[in-house]
């Protein structure tokens, strides 16, 4: 399995993308651990793999060191809730979303989210590598980002509620985390707004461009090309007449002057 992931990363990740992946030195044991944790991720399609990798990234957002300490406090009070280091991520995520666990065991939710933060801190470069390689394979995968962010926000709100139920709601780190959820909600709504504006803009700009283009064509058809040519010809004729008249005057002057000499 380890070999599979490393090969997948090496094969799918473009050189330019790899250059941007932060260089993190992992021990062989840590690498093995990351591979095990990612083992349960779906591999039936690029879409589902992308969703899970991105979801794990989004779930770990805004977990500050202070919040990690707070979460560890609740886990320490009940050691059985601590997850094994190599617990598959897919199970962790499903646990958070499980409505029964959510209601009955908020400490379990805290433990699960803590595990995700741990996973992100440990295996972030692996995950980013997977995300980049999948995007290089199909850039349209990014279209699902907003849905992933909404799902992640829902799960993160579960953590915030769990901390509140466990009595940590007044803690500064928990409040900062709750505030970050509001910001995230704003950002998601803004993205939705921008998408709608983009659509409206594209519709109106396309419509305008088509109409102006037609208008230009109509004007071009209306322009009387011959009118200008006729006017230019008339000007030339007038010039020619003036020259002819001048020539006659010239001859007349010459005759008159020569006549006066005689």
């Amino acid at each position: 399995m380890k070999q599979f992931f490393l090969t997948a990363v090496a094969l799918l990740l473009p050189t330019s993308v790899m250059a941007h992946v932060p260089a993190v030195t992992l021990t062989a044991e840590q690498t093995e651990q990351c591979v095990v944790m990612m083992s349960g991720f779906p591999d039936d399609s690029p879409e589902s793999r992308y969703v899970f990798f991105r979801l794990s990234q989004e779930l770990a957002k805004d977990v500050s060191p202070e919040l990690s300490v707070l979460m560890a406090r609740y886990m320490a009070e009940n050691e059985t809730r601590r997850l094994p280091a190599g617990w598959p991520m897919i199970d962790v995520i499903e646990d958070i979303a499980d409505p029964v666990l959510r209601q009955a065991a908020p400490a379990q939710t805290v433990a699960s989210m803590s595990h995700i933060a741990y996973f992100d801190a440990l295996c972030g470069p692996f995950v980013q590598g997977q995300v980049d390689s999948l995007l290089a394979f199909d850039p349209d995968l990014a279209d699902t980002d907003i849905v992933i962010r909404e799902d992640a926000l829902y799960l993160r709100q579960i953590l915030s509620e769990a901390l509140d139920r466990l009595g940590g709601g007044d803690n500064n780190a928990a409040q900062a985390y709750a505030a970050s959820l509001v910001t995230e909600r704003d950002d998601i709504e803004y993205v939705g707004f921008v998408d709608e504006v983009d659509e409206l803009e594209a519709l109106f700009m396309g419509d305008l461009d088509t109409k102006l283009s037609r208008s230009n064509d109509a004007v071009n058809e209306s322009v009387n090309v011959e009118a200008f040519q006729d006017a230019a010809t008339l000007a030339r004729d007038m010039d020619a007449q003036a020259r002819e008249k001048a020539q006659q005057e010239r001859l007349y002057s010459l005759v008159r002057i020569l006549g006066s000499v005689g």
Binding site: F228, D230, A231, A235, A242
Partner: peptide, 14 residues
């Protein structure tokens, strides 16, 4: 005259 003829005929047409 050359300039005036032009102005009198072409510019109004255009």
């Amino acid at each position: 005259g050359v300039g005036n003829n032009y102005i009198q005929s072409v510019v109004p047409a255009l």
